[in-house]
Write a protein that binds this DNA or RNA. Structure first.
Lengths: 345, 345
DNA sequence: GATAGGGACTTTACCGGTTAAGAAAGCGCT
DNA sequence: AGCGCTTTCTTAACCGGTAAAGTCCCTATC
């Protein structure tokens, strides 16, 4: 019978067993000079025999940096599950954190004010050494909170939204333009966009970019619908776009994520419309999901995993004092698949 | 110009400003008796004015419990993004953590030995107060590690896999039986199952349950394929099952998750087979995705969010010393939708 | 009027590390 | 022999809290 919450072995036990002082053990474990090889070995052996690992809690109390990165996500749980984006993003972040032997502190919050409060208490409570901020909106409440705290953060979003914070962002404006120009080049003159949550900053930017592109190309019709990113909302939006008379309805639809595009595909099928003959669909983000449908979904692809990794790298830069500013990552590129084609006459 | 990493305000500053000792501040913030209302107020006011929050790091060093729960997930990142299961599970866990003002420490690991090591260092480093263990397999290396550490854990998996650890589990055996009986009742005699990763304990259980149900019902044909849970693998498996001669191929397929069922649906379409007329498909888990396809996917549904919540509740039970043992949660139930029907003669 | 009891705080000793300053030993050099 | 310089360790003071024990004062009791 082992004691369930038995006394844990501490640096003192290791020091005693190795016949040195606590200080010496600390020096050894932080690879600092001032110890002979022999002593170092003895200390490590003692630690191994006792199964000791330094308490990160105590270590960070004593002034060392905290090896934990915060990430609060503010979207209804129901939607999160479906969005392949986040898990892929997180896995990219993790891949870099692991190299720095840091961990990710994750929290789902209901609104941005809660998130702002959370950031403050995480930071003041010395729970995190820095944080990643996602889903920026206009006049984001996190900007005025994070800045004066001195909390190292990386904001995922266009610099116009993130104020003075260090930011990592994709050029959605250019990407939306490319998407629209591609569809127009195929011959589409009536194009719709099923956008994300209107409150989100990048939705605003994409909406403006879509308008601009439509105007520049002199499209005959250009619709935009805001949704909450959910598949249901995508289905609803698609249904309402496609119920118009054939001569008036869009012949191509751009979606703001993959899920809604999948939903759109099944709405088209349900309405007896053929993709891409009757209507072309273009997804966004390009997760695996786009290759699992029939027809496969054309998409604006970007490397979400790499995006997350870049964000994490940038955060470590901020924490160590250098590398602030604005960091663009590659613009999403068009990956044509089976769901886009010239409109049938 | 604010000092970026300026000196943080500590309990001492608050004490000084309120004109009391550190001890008094500690008493006030932990709602312990021994202070007058007036003093309590003064302390809280001082804290508010200084924007102080107690350092959880220091607090947990001083012996208080750690309000962080660990979760390591051991699946390739590529697959994680797609699996709606995890995010939904995590959001369920979070919903309970929030009530206890705890956070989730998340880490993606490459293998279970890495995870076992991580648990040890998290626990010894006082990073976590307990942990959730998922994806159990037979002779799981985490069982012998977690037990002697005295680390409070909840194992998500059947008790036969989790040894002496407290477990929360769904009765997959019964659910698989129900799925097979349902399809048989519709008239299917040749049924296939596209299973998950063979190494996973619950896959083993489901495989055995499928065999048993098939035998009990005297099915004419019963196939099982192991995959890695990815959509591509699901598509491959479906393709190979459906390429047999019409008289020999399965008329119904059960999948171990939603993604593979979606992939199966598109493979059927690509091969010119109608669902459910030519082949019935039954998904597992029942995320939103099942309602976004055409036809909609029948599925074995369970409340993944609630599952996560129950796991978290159980973990808090273990941490506080009571509530160990085995905790079954409701068995997945069949939700018939558009992808299952009697086989056409 | 001495004393016990209790409320309201303060003191002080940790928790498990880090780190600056100090001390002992060994070495080369004049 | 005496001096300074390293190298190798030890000591002790923190970090920011918690909690047990101690102090002080005020009131009730016989």
């Amino acid at each position: 019978m082992t004691a369930l919450h038995g006394p844990r072995v501490t640096i003192k036990d290791v020091a005693a067993r190795a016949g040195v002082s606590k200080g010496a053990v600390s020096l050894a474990f932080n690879h600092k000079p001032g110890l002979s090889e022999a002593t170092r070995d003895r200390i490590f052996r003692a630690a191994r025999e006792l199964g000791w690992a330094p308490s990160l809690t105590a270590r960070s109390l004593a002034g060392a940096r905290v090896d934990v990165v915060g990430l609060a996500i503010c979207r209804p749980a129901r939607m999160l599950g479906l969005e392949p984006f986040y898990m892929e993003f997180v896995s990219g972040v993790e891949s870099v954190l692991t190299e720095h032997s840091s961990s990710l502190l994750l929290r789902l919050v209901k609104n941005l004010d809660e998130e702002a409060g959370l950031l403050e208490s995480w930071w003041k409570g010395r729970q995190i050494g820095g944080s990643i901020l996602v889903d920026f909106r206009e006049d984001d409440p996190r900007v005025p909170v994070a800045e004066p705290l001195g909390l190292p953060v990386v904001a995922v979003g266009h610099p116009s939204l993130t104020g003075s914070l260090t930011s990592v962002w994709t050029d959605d404006t250019t990407a939306v333009g490319e998407a629209v120009r591609y569809l127009a080049a195929l011959g589409h003159r009536r194009i719709a966009r099923v956008g994300g949550a209107a409150a989100l900053g990048h939705t605003v930017l994409r909406t403006a970019a879509f308008d601009e592109a439509a105007k520049a190309l002199g499209l005959a019709g250009a619709w935009q619908v805001a949704t909450d990113f959910s598949g249901e909302a995508g289905a609803r939006a698609t249904r309402s776009l496609l119920t118009a008379a054939p001569a008036d309805r869009p012949t191509a639809i751009v979606y703001d994520n993959d899920i809604m595009a999948v939903a759109g595909l099944s709405v088209a099928a349900e309405m007896g419309l053929k993709v891409p003959e009757d209507v072309s669909l273009l997804a966004w983000d390009d997760s695996q999901l786009c290759r699992l449908t029939h027809p496969t979904l054309s998409a604006m692809s970007h490397d979400v995993h790499g995006f997350g990794a870049e964000v994490a790298r940038t955060l470590f830069g901020v924490i160590s004092g250098d590398g602030t500013g604005s960091h663009p990552v590659p613009t999403p590129v068009l990956t044509p698949r089976g769901s886009t084609a010239p409109p049938s006459r």
